[in-house]
Write a protein that binds this DNA or RNA. Structure first.
Lengths: 140, 140
DNA sequence: GTTCGTTGTGTTATGCTATAACGTGTGGCA
DNA sequence: TGCCACACGTTATAGCATAACACAACGAAC
């Protein structure tokens, strides 16, 4: 049932690193972690990331210049399966203390943004929602 | 009634450049535009930008690594005046063809994000909402 | 199977974005 | 006067991203 196309060797390596990490990673950090696997240049990382993001398996966090594996890969959303649990726009809550990221989505927000866009005849291609702050564990 | 503190010389210069531009500018582009005014180093721009953003007079567009003047400076929002028209979170619609940016805010979205945060005891510090796409004029 | 286009890959070089570290100058204020 | 806070100036460096070129692997069409 999975619509995941087979990943290439480099894509698999990058995705594995992201999946094993509990915090976002920069492209250069990923590169360092993959030197033993034969990676030598940033482009090898960026090219793999581009594809993973295009497939919806990874996300870029704009406010951090770094990357995470999709937390909802291969999950359907609210009964609809669009491939990789592709649910409208994804939002991120990023703890500035511990670095942990919480990925979620909210149809009400999607609708609201879609409504704004429709009114103005603006055609959305990609939407970024990132909340930076402190998670419960770090507020003490 | 304005709560704007007096801006320093460098802050004024940077804000003027942003205000005159009809599209976001990168820090280095601002630097180039201010060489004749005596600017020599990126830090002069970044320091001014930091203050302007702190005051809410300018915004950073995370997905573009660039900056705009606040479109709502000195305006109150829905009857409430919090200084610089400080209304919850601001969202941006960015046209990837012409570069124009539309700044807006939506209380329903604010409420929704605040609700999510409250449920998880997450304390938001700064929220980024950016829609990239095509504006009406560029869709033809 | 050969030809050809597409896609992934490897490598070098370069450009853009942002901050560290240090020093100077100025104005307010006890 | 002496101190503090803050803006400013400068050099150097760190961190993020892509251009340009070359080669290899694969599949489709003939």
């Amino acid at each position: 049932m999975s619509t995941t196309p087979n990943l290439t060797k480099n894509q698999t390596l990058v995705l594995d690193v992201l999946t094993r990490s509990d915090a976002p990673l920069s492209a250069y950090t990923i590169l360092d972690k993959l030197r033993d696997s034969g990676f030598r240049a940033p482009l090898q990382v960026y090219r793999a990331l581009d594809k993973l993001i295009e497939m919806g398996i990874a996300h870029r966090l704009e406010s951090l210049n770094s990357f995470v594996a999709c937390a909802h890969a291969n999950q359907s959303c609210c009964g609809h399966d669009h491939g990789h649990g592709h649910h409208g726009t994804v939002a991120f809550a990023i703890c500035e203390s511990c670095g942990q990221v919480n990925e979620f989505h909210d149809h009400a927000i999607d609708d609201r943004l879609a409504g704004w866009a429709k009114e103005r005849k603006f055609k959305p291609a990609k939407t970024t929602i990132e909340i930076r702050g402190l998670c419960e564990a770090c507020m003490h």
